[in-house]
Amino acid sequence: MTELKEELKGKIIEVLNLEDVASTDIQDDDALFGEGLGLDSIDALELIVLMDKDYGIKLSDPKNGKAIFESITTMASYISQNRTK
C-alpha cells in the first residue's frame, strides 16, 4: 500500500501540473480538495481519467467520488480493492 500511495502522489503531481509541489509535501491523509491541495472540478475529472487509464477502474457513479478522492489513503485503498490492471 505504501508503494501505491507514493506512486499516486507522483502521478497526481504530474497529471495535475502541481508545480512547486513535491511528493513529500503531500501527507497520506491530507484533503485533496478544498483546504488541502486545493484541487478543482477539472482536477477531479482528471483523477477519474487517471483511475481508468492506469488502473482500469471506471467510476460510473459520481456520488462515490467524494469519498474515494478524499485523500491519498482513500484513493489507494479503493484502487487496491478494485483495480483491473
Binding site: 501540473n17 477539472i42 482536477d43 475529472l45 482528471e46 481519467v49 481508468d52
Partner: peptide, 8 residues
C-alpha cells in the same frame, strides 16, 4: 483517454 484539462 481525452484529458478534461486539455479539453477546456
Amino acid at each position: 483517454f481525452p484529458s478534461p484539462a486539455t479539453f477546456v
